[in-house]
Design a protein around this nucleic acid. Structure first.
Length: 366
RNA sequence: GGAGAGGUUCCCGAGUGGUCAAAGGGAGCAGACUGUAAAUCUGCCGGCUAAGCCUUCGGAGGUUCAAAUCCUCCCCUCUCCA
């Protein structure tokens, strides 16, 4: 994997670059749609490429439980299995340590999960996570970390950072497949010194890319931005930086300004399924009665398949009637919005106009 | 014509003397979703000059301190038999 910065914005820390993987190039800043179970919910791979997706996310824990990584491997790996030939990044299962907190127990060696599907017990540690991700054949492999909750006291987070560093080293020692690249994940909660410690320990290990984990867990956006900026300063300039799980368009914009290159979030797809559509003037809740007879598209300026062909009134009808097409059309729009939002940010960086873009962005939604 | 069942707040449907503005569901209205246990979850859902009052349980009348609940008559639905 190769990462090259093509341009740096003059007035912010934003960068526009390109990641080269064996499965193709990824222009950054990039948004990666989330396809936890080997599918971006409601969308086909064609829908994703049409919307401009360059890389998608998938998940170690979920694919391990179902259908099983060995099964996926026997069927030719995740890309072939799901008919997606562009790059895939797999999360390690570290987020499930947080999201499935009630169903797991952490030890020094890893985490014992009780399956949310059938209650059976499964051990997932750094070795297991690497082996699973190797079998899946993803292009970017995430280290197995502990995503700490928020709020959490200093001692808890301190231990969490030490554990994450210990596991990161184990991950690094595991053999991966051809073309696979392992990213380390910085933890440290909202504590500046722990973020610094975590970042330095991981940078010492020399990963091809670094992620900021443990954010978007309920903290205020100003706290998040503080942590991002405090963390990024300890990360090498010439490696991609990935902010995990963030977020709203405005959150992403702020993080790009602070020097982040990669993002993922369930928000565009989940909100689409719940009737909330992203536009430059804010979120449009398609189920609102205001759109019953509205013949306009969701967003007049949007070039997505949904906006080119369907009215708000029709989308509202599909949603209210629980029609399956609603999920697909809404998801197409939101994913397109996010991806093109990143394109506009990227172009603004190349033109040294990111701050102007930001100003215009907030003006439109007020 | 005979026998039976029933009419409850937008809909379905509980409730058979006071704890009933009336369970529950649906529909509707609004909100939340941040490395997906999410096509999920939450709130509202008769009116008002609101810790109180007013109107409501097919219609009219009556019994009672008190009626969606008991009585009388009327109207209307449905099922079965002829």
């Amino acid at each position: 994997m190769k990462f090259e910065i093509l341009h740096k914005d003059e007035s912010t820390n934003a960068r526009a670059g390109i990641i080269e993987t064996t499965r193709g190039k990824i222009e950054t800043p990039v948004f990666m749609p989330v396809g936890t179970q080997g599918t971006v919910k409601a969308l086909s791979p064609e829908d994703l490429t049409d919307a401009g997706a360059q890389i998608i996310l998938s998940n170690t824990y979920h694919l391990y439980l179902r259908p099983g990584h060995e099964t996926v491997n026997k069927l030719g790996g995740l890309h072939k299995f799901m008919n997606w030939s562009r790059p895939v990044l797999t999360d390690s299962g570290g987020y499930q340590v947080y999201s499935l907190a009630k169903l797991r127990k952490i030890t020094q060696d890893g985490v014992t999960f009780q399956s949310h599907i059938d209650g059976s017990r499964h051990f997932l540690g750094p070795r297991e996570s690497m082996a699973i991700q190797k079998a899946l054949g993803s292009d970017i492999v995430m280290a197995f970390d502990e995503c700490a909750p928020y709020p959490a006291d200093y001692e808890y987070v301190h231990n969490s950072v030490k554990l994450t560093s210990k596991w990161a080293k184990v991950c690094l020692d595991q053999e991966l497949g051809e073309g696979q690249n392992l990213f380390g994940i910085v933890q440290g909660g909202m504590y500046s010194d722990l973020r610094e410690m975590s970042a330095k320990e991981l940078v010492e290990m020399d990963f091809p890319g670094y992620a900021l984990g443990g954010l978007s867990v309920g903290e205020e956006s100003d706290i998040r931005e503080r942590v991002i900026s405090e963390t990024v300063q300890f990360l090498p300039d010439n490696k991609p930086r990935y902010l995990m799980g963030v977020g709203k368009p405005e959150d992403i914009l702020e993080a790009v300004i602070l020097g982040v290159d990669m993002f993922d979030c369930v928000m565009p797809t989940r909100n689409a399924r719940n009737g909330s559509l992203f536009t430059d003037s804010g979120r449009l809740v398609i189920k609102n009665a205001a759109y019953i007879e509205d013949s306009a598209p969701v967003d007049e300026n949007c070039g997505c398949y949904t906006c080119r062909n369907y009215s708000r009134a029709y989308l509202r009808h599909l949603f209210m009637a629980n029609e399956l097409l609603a999920y697909r059309l809404n998801s197409i729009h939101n994913i397109y919005y996010y991806i093109h939002f990143m394109d506009r940010i990227k172009n603004a960086i190349k033109d040294n106009k990111l701050l102007e873009f930001k100003k215009e962005f907030y003006k439109l939604r007020s």
